[in-house]
Every structure is written in C-alpha cells, then in structure tokens.
Design a protein around this nucleic acid. Structure first.
Lengths: 189, 189
DNA sequence: TCCGAATCTTGATCTAGATCAAGTGTTTTT
DNA sequence: AAAAACACTTGATCTAGATCAAGATTCGGA
C-alpha cells in the first residue's frame, strides 16, 4: 500500500520505520474517478498528493476561459498547487483526474506537525521544492528558446509515457500550442 | 555590512546571534564591475549570492546564440543557477553584473556544513526554493496566458524599479519579446 | 571631455502558429 | 446497442510578433 511512497521518500532522504510510520499516520488515501476534481481554482490548496495509481493534470484558466495544463502527474509523482500550498493564497489551479486514480493525501496541517516530529522531512520538502523549481525553470527555458516542433520532440523523448496515457489535447496545452498545431507537427516531423 | 542579509533571513526564519555569526563566517564578500560575470555557462554553480548593492541578470543562451534573461536581481535578492546548485550539473546560465555590484557569496560546501550546524537553515532553504518556484510558475503562467502588452503592463506594475535600472533590451528578453516589440508597446499602450 | 559602444526607435516585410470551420473516428455513458 | 460527448485531423485564413534595416540618442570608459 505505502511501499511506493516509501521508495519515493527514500530516493531523497533516509527515513526510519518509526519516522515513516508517523508519515503514514498523517496520510489519507482517496480514489478519484475520471473527470473528478481533486482541487478547484479558488479553494485553498492545503495538501500535496502522491499518485499511487492513475493520472492527474493541473491547469490554470485565464481571462478568456482557456485552460493551460501546468503539470501532468502519473504514478509515483507528487501533485499540488504548490504556490497555494506554500503561500496560503487561493489556488489558481484546478487538479483533475484523467483516469480513475488512487492518491495519498498529505494535509498541510499534518505537514506542519510532521516537520516537528520528523525533522528530516525538512530536507525532503527542500528537495521536493527544488525539483519542482528545476522542472519549471526547464519549461520556461524550453518555451522561450525552442519552436513548437522542438518542444514536442523534447517531450516525446523525455516523457514518452505521456503519449500512451494522456489525450493529445492536454499534451498540446502542456506544450503551449493548439491541438491543431500538435496534430500537424506529428503528421510531418 | 551584514544587516541587510540578516533582515532578509529574518523575513523567513528566526535566527540567534550565534547562528547568524556562523552564517557570516561562511560568507565571502565580493564586488563585481559592470559587465563582469559571476558565473559562466558550463561551470558548476557551487554558490548562491545575496545582492547587497547593485544589479545582476542571469541568462541562458540557446543554439542560435540568442540570450534569454531568466532573472533580474536587484539588492536584497538572491541569485544563482539554482538548478546547477541543486543538482550539481553544469550551469546553463550565465550571471552578469549590470552595474558595479556588491554581493555576499555562500558556497555550496559551506551550505552543507551550515545546514548541520544551523538546522533552521533547512527551513530557510525550503522557503527560498519555494519562493523561487512560485516566481517561476508565475512566469510560466503569464507567458502562456497573456499577450506581450499584458505581460509588459504586469511587470511595470509589479517591478517598476526594473525600468529605472535595467536596460530595456534585457527587460524585453525577460518578458520573452524582442526589444523592437517592447519599444512599440511602450509607445502605444 | 571625447570617442566608441551600447541602447532605443521607427518602418517595411515575413512567418510560425492561432483561429475558424467542418468532418471523421473513438470512447463513455445510459 | 445507441446516443452523446470527446478526441483527432485537415484545410483555409488571419495576425501577433519576429526579423531585417537604418538612423538617432545615450552612456561609460580612457
């Protein structure tokens, strides 16, 4: 049940059975059906979620009601509106299940308690934020520096699994282009 | 000398005189002349720098040798190639002084020691990474969602100080547009 | 204080990618 | 099993912003 989570933590930190038990005690397991929202824009995001099985996307919605996919999270990844989680501001993102998805939810209030009980988690969160940062900087640089076709090739190389699981319409949005354009790129390139 | 740094730390954490002294002992003060590089692409970025006085920019360089400004850092801000700092990979960014600039440099090796001596800095770094993340997500969302003119208005509102200090050519790059386009937007809008 | 380099502006043209529109194919739900 | 919603493709057109070019202005180092 929690082995996958434990492995994920141990990629970043060393944790004792006792400490891990404390983590588990602060976790809530949930299953979401396809199309169901884990978080809605405007609510406060007071959790981070670990994907055990399934797939979610987070997206923002602009003035013109256009959706922009920010993150795609398959199993063994964390998803949240980290900005809202960190600052306490209202969420700008909506998080939606793309398939029936099982997640482990870690509430912010629990995190605060846990950080005192299990200080090594400070390191875990530092690394988690660091990785989130690196991934996002990557995206900024790619969006700035490369053409739509180049961005597509890069994602296909680095995340081929997305193309097996996620509708192209969401991948196009994640890549910052229209589905029509992605379709044409796939046809030619 | 170090009051500004102390205030910056205390915006995020509570730190004792003793702890702060340990931080200061691990810091190196440097002054950079205009146009001089603090970091060059390809080197490892083994530090983070706090700007005491002056102004720096970080930028990436793509295949076509086009520069893309990633960060503008005036006094009281931290600058680094955080990705390289975190992962140990070679830096993709160059950091250059835009004016004569005084910085406080915190070496990665010192950070590792410091984190053991002053555990509260784990929290500081977690927050620093968190803020870096939030700022970067902001940028992704703005670049995705808004037109060049809207991005300009937003930056003008949130960072009017940039327009007093930083050449428009770098601001244009930061905003993801050509200097010509920025010039026209400023003329009309 | 002067010279060269950097910065900024304006005009003319070009293009990657968006938008609009319509049809086909494929899941999901009932 | 049928209907409805969703996903994908292809074509025609449009446009924000890039690129190219050239002149005017400002800045900063010797």
């Amino acid at each position: 049940m929690y082995e996958q989570l434990r492995r994920n933590l141990e990629e970043k930190i060393t944790i004792t059975d006792d400490e891990f038990l404390k983590v588990v005690q602060n976790i809530r397991k949930t299953t979401l059906k396809r199309k169901k929202d884990l978080l809605r824009k405007g609510d406060q995001c007071d959790f981070i979620a670990f994907v055990n099985e399934g797939c979610l996307r987070s997206y923002s919605t602009d003035d013109r009601d256009t959706e922009h996919v920010i993150q795609i999270a398959l199993e063994n990844n964390w998803i949240s509106d980290l900005r809202s989680f960190i600052t306490g501001d209202k969420a700008e993102l909506t998080i939606e299940a793309l398939e029936t998805t099982e997640i482990l939810v870690l509430q912010k209030s629990c995190v605060d308690t846990l950080l005192k009980e299990v200080p090594v988690l400070e390191k875990f969160f530092r690394i988690l934020y660091g990785n989130a940062y690196v991934a996002t900087v990557d995206r900024v640089q790619w969006n700035i520096s490369y053409s739509a076709a180049e961005r597509y090739e890069h994602l296909l190389k680095n995340h081929p699994e997305y193309f097996q699981r996620v509708p192209l319409i969401h991948i196009a949005s994640y890549l910052g282009m229209t589905p029509e354009n992605l379709s044409r790129i796939r046809k030619n390139g």
